[in-house]
Design a protein around this nucleic acid. Structure first.
Lengths: 191, 191, 191, 191
DNA sequence: TTGTAATCGAGACGGTACGTCATGTCTTACT
DNA sequence: AGTAAGACATGACGTACCGTCTCGATTACAA
């Protein structure tokens, strides 16, 4: 609450939102590679320079647009006291999100974007895979009924998340029920 | 009276090989998005038209070039009679391949290419993930010591493969030893 | 009729004629600049190499095709004893030929072709403008009623021929009657 | 409330001039058919798109470049009161211009360009042959010493201009003196 | 209330690469 | 030997976008 001198920025919120929305729309309509800054500018009713002023390049704009919608990773469920139940439910929620057409498309485009751009990879981990790993790991560590080493936890968590991601990337079906079963199968190995 | 139109096709093998090699080199030097057909033609010492004559578009050329080197998925190991041992070894081999810098780069680029192009996705599954799933599934099904349902096998197999792929895509370490441990952890759930 | 040993050449007359006809047709259908060797080969039902074997390049093929039809410069008329009458008739015939749509198009294309290719220019003069100048000059020189110096004759002849050619190139009307009048006007200056 | 769409056209004069100059240079260095837009862009230090933005096709660029230099048709001479003297001098000036290597090359290229492109033909007449015909015709009409009909004037004018143009196109010598003589010869027929 | 300066829309600019077309050369199989 | 077919290396075509650069107009703070 210091009376600091304010920075007299006057960035147009209207433009910012319109650009991110246009980017998301075009991404889902035409795909990652077909996205052109000119099309974004036209759809958003914005000058190209306004985009370049705030996003230094295409890759960062794409990451911003895709990660701004932070509904990919669902909130952790309530703690029922049983880790397998909790993680099964959590995996089901995650599968519902990633398994939907839009979620799957978003995950695939993010994966591709991360391949080409390390910074996107970092942010993808920070906003998506990191929190997922952290929650599952913590829930496992807090489960007295499952005596696990850190390395076992890491393996189990990556197998669960990876199994789901793999199915999405491979265009194979991923249902809430299937994810829960997979989770249970993996966790049974930690008895 | 004249004979039917003859078919004097004489595709140059020299050009075909040079193009695929140049594509692979440029892909690993500059990345997927930076790959230009003009650069491939120049490096291969070939006219652009010769590329377009045989590959209808960039995506198919990339898939061809990356999948032509079929060293991504290793050959299945000898059957020792113990499924967990065999699959552990198999997973280790796979991890050695995917975990190497070149293998990891290839997998990432293939994943990105498949995202943008359904046909590439199909061929990636046909040459990579399909055979992996098939082998692991068959080895599990043939293991009398593990009584498994098809659905359980499918879950376990995807968790193992997905876990490894996920680590590669997330730029996390994937060692032969880690992969074997992860496999054992998952399979223990199938007792 | 000598029983000379024949040279065992086996050039296909069928191909030669078909190529020249196809060239002429395409020239009048699409114009000089649009003419492609590939189109000629296709229309003539001939391999490209057959064209290149006998005509070293596009320009020479075009000149050959256009000049093969030697109906541009009409035959000189019968000598009536009166130079002005004869030359007026001759000019009229020439105008009828050059003034027709096909003749005009041919003259224009030949002019353009000659601009780009000196050898075509030479052959155009040899088969077209040269004979015209020669006839008119000779007819004037043989007219006792017109006492002319060589230089006067040359001027008058070029004015007459040039006047007609100019009208054709400028897309202006050129009639038999107009040409005769122009001829008379010019020749009257040689009294 | 917002103002109507503004028109922020800011065509670069620098680029316009550089393109026309480069075109003229390359035209005289390599000829009409060898002129490539890419070479113009490179020589002018300009992007190809900048050429295509303002000139819809090669033909119009060529016409613009050649006709922009309006030194082909010389200014009419002062009126001395004697039409034959005036027109002789005018023809001499024209011959000096058309007879020079550069003038001849320009005339030949314009003729060829007009052959392939009607609009170029129109502009060539508008800027070159039209004004020539108009001046000569008017000078003749204003000469009381020469009683001429419109049709006679038209014939004489076309014979004079055509005679000169013909000599240039036929690669024959055209001197100031020769042109003056030809003019006098033709005009003597209008006594 | 009025400068004044950052931001905005628009779009021209010098470039790079696209995918297509035609060049002139070559090789193959047929006649 | 000549031919129809057509692949080849080359290079220009005309288009689409890139990222940079003006150009007025707009707008919100500071004087």
């Amino acid at each position: 609450m210091t009376a600091a001198a304010t920075t007299p920025r006057r960035r147009s919120e209207r433009a910012r939102v319109a650009i991110l929305e246009a980017t998301n729309e075009l991404l889902h309509e035409h795909g990652l590679e077909q996205l052109s800054i000119e099309a974004v500018a036209a759809r958003a009713g914005v000058g190209k320079q306004t985009i370049y002023r705030w996003w230094p390049n295409r890759a960062i704009l794409i990451a911003d647009a895709l990660l701004d919608r932070d509904d990919l990773a669902p909130a952790p469920p309530a703690d029922t006291g049983d880790a397998i139940t909790d993680l099964g439910r959590w995996a089901g929620d995650l599968a519902a999100s990633l398994g939907s057409p839009r979620g799957a498309a978003t995950l695939r485009m993010l994966t591709a974007a991360a391949t080409a751009h390390p910074e996107t990879s970092r942010r993808l981990h920070e906003k998506f895979s990191g929190p997922l790993q952290d929650y599952a790991n913590a829930r496992l560590a807090a489960a007295p009924e499952l005596r696990t080493t850190p390395s076992q936890r890491r393996n189990a968590v990556d197998a669960i998340i990876g199994g789901m991601v793999f199915r999405v990337l491979a265009h194979q079906e991923l249902t809430r029920r299937g994810a829960t079963e997979m989770t249970r199968t993996v966790l049974r190995g930690l008895s």
